[in-house]
Design a protein around this nucleic acid. Structure first.
Lengths: 344, 344
DNA sequence: CTGAAAGCGCTAACAC
DNA sequence: GTGTTAGCGCTTTCAG
């Protein structure tokens, strides 16, 4: 069978003894209606020939596709894969295919993907986690998006509203602030924040929110240590924090890692240093990654409805376009667990 | 600007004062060469007009696309997202876009996606984790794949070789067997397996491999409890196992959960039941999910090079086609951690 | 090296 | 209702 030129619509039309147009109408229910008898003949011919419509040809003729693009920094990161899961689910409901673009956080790749998505005439593009303080890159992305939008595309971002598109705004600041307040309420008084790179917005916002809450509640600013926005970054930052504290007597009683991955790294560092998290030192994270809900001690964190965020972003980008930019805010919820027991 | 019909190749050609053919050749380096001067003129015109090639049109004219499809059961599951990450990386190197299809384990969806991918004329399709003992569904998928292949498509699977395509075979049996042997070597004598649904092949294979290893080493077959192939399934199965053991005196000293997620659920169940994993009861998993490497106690497991598996699958499916089906075996490596200390 | 022209497979006016 | 016939935007013979 191999090599057998795939059956086309005209093949089907010929086989059914009808015109091209009729075959087309019968096969895809346009507004026009086809006589049942013919309809059946066409369907029969199509299945006999093993006909499969050519989506590319349809896209050309119709001027629109059935695909949406999703840009993430790293699909193997549970934060993004959970968002992707929600978005993929929603896409399926709309009969859309999603093009997964793994940028690896590299600006060039991001731009390349954006161009590719534009070439594909993707119906819509959702950008997740592409927030940097890198102004140059941000403006290049903004330009690419703008021309994509001008061409009739739709786009949305999941992040902070720095791009000229609809966005699902995650309240990193508020969530971290609420967490700080709760921790102070539990009796903690000396905090440190484990942050990612300075130019990573999520990290910066969570840091700022926590600092603000902490300052308002205690009158003092939390210390902080920066490292990678990853499990190992968290471990290293915590190790450094522990060492420094011992050397200069600036021990803290509570640590906020700006995401769960870093928090888990911090947990590991504590374990290695013989510090018992909970009784001796409180540790909290952010995101509430599902697979991490079983670490011990249970990690206090700020829960984000990640899957919903993905769904929401797609809804937003598929909804009817409006002149002004839309924003949909999503708030986190503080989840207290054993890693931050009430301080006695 | 909006609404402005996107510039086409003919616009560019006209603007540059050359023919359509020349513009095409200049813009995409066909085998033909264009005089540098003209080349430049075309490039200039293209950038002036903000020209973006239409991938759908190219696909039609060329008869081939730049996309590959990836079917996974659940992208938010770290097992799949890690595979997806590796595959996406590799795809990027080849300049390919990946269409992510989240099947949710539903056969109909899987078939729908396969059809969609075929319509899209995807260059290749990689199926991950779609292994059921459901013969009917398997054969329907096989049929769909066959006709896709006949149409010139390429496909590969990650799993067991039950489909008529190249496959990256994961040695679930061998890995589990090796784990069993090591556990016996550590001094364990009474094991139980926490399995997923009977018709899930990965689960069945791991169970069988473990049972075989255990039987050969101890002369007895491990008990087993089935539940969902998930964290909660693991928790429930473990809870039941613990209760039963207390009631009828069949306590075990060692438990093998067929994947890390279930193992983590089992850990939670033990914690709740006041059983100390490690000293009192050994627990092991399978996969070595990255984010789970920090649970306490450290989970003994069988490490699978998940990202490599994704990469490998793409390589396989992109490599030159061969008459006979190719298989690439991937083996797991037992990683001993604190959850299975040597038995004293 | 360049241009003219014939498709690629399908949809959507537009007639009948 | 159904058929005819232009395209959709690009690549690729086939002639020059």
């Amino acid at each position: 069978m191999a090599g057998e030129r795939a059956a086309t619509l005209s093949d089907v039309a010929r086989e059914a003894g009808v015109s091209l147009a009729t075959a087309s109408r019968a096969l895809n229910g346009s507004d026009r209606v086809v006589r049942p008898e013919l309809q059946e003949r066409v369907l029969a011919a199509a299945s006999k020939l093993g006909y499969t419509p050519n989506a590319n040809a349809q896209a050309m003729a119709r001027g629109s596709t059935e695909t949406v693009g999703l840009l993430v920094k790293d699909i193997s990161d549970p934060y993004f894969s959970t968002i992707a899961g929600g978005l993929a689910d929603e896409a399926e409901k709309h009969g859309l295919l999603v093009m997964l673009c793994n940028t690896g956080g590299q600006p060039e790749r991001e731009q390349k993907f954006l161009a590719a998505l534009r070439r594909q005439r993707s119906r819509a593009i959702v950008l997740a986690g592409s927030d940097t303080a890198d102004v140059r890159h941000t403006s290049e992305v903004a330009d690419l998006l703008t021309s994509y939008l001008d061409g009739g595309g739709r786009a949305a971002a999941i992040s902070q509203p720095r791009l000229p598109v609809d966005t699902v705004v995650i309240d990193n600041h508020g969530g971290a602030k609420a967490l700080a307040e709760q921790l102070v309420g539990l009796g903690y008084r000396r905090a440190a924040v484990l942050t990612g790179p300075e130019d990573l917005l999520v990290s910066a916002e969570r840091h700022a929110g926590f600092a603000e809450g902490w300052l308002e509640a205690t009158g003092s600013k939390p210390a902080y240590v920066s490292d990678e926005f990853s499990r190992d970054g968290g471990r290293r930052a915590m190790t450094r924090l522990l060492e420094d504290g011992r050397n200069d007597g600036t021990e803290v009683d509570c640590v906020f890692a700006v995401n769960d991955l870093m928090a888990v790294g911090a947990l590991a560092a504590c374990r290695q240093a013989g510090v018992e998290v909970g009784p001796e030192l409180a540790v909290a994270g952010f995101d509430d990654i599902a697979t991490l809900r079983d670490v011990t001690p249970g990690l206090t964190t700020v829960r984000l409805p990640l899957a919903d965020i993905g769904r929401l972003a797609l809804e937003l980008v598929l909804g009817k376009p409006s002149a002004e930019l839309r924003k949909r805010s999503v708030h986190g919820e503080v989840v207290l667990r054993e890693s931050t027991p009430p301080r006695s």
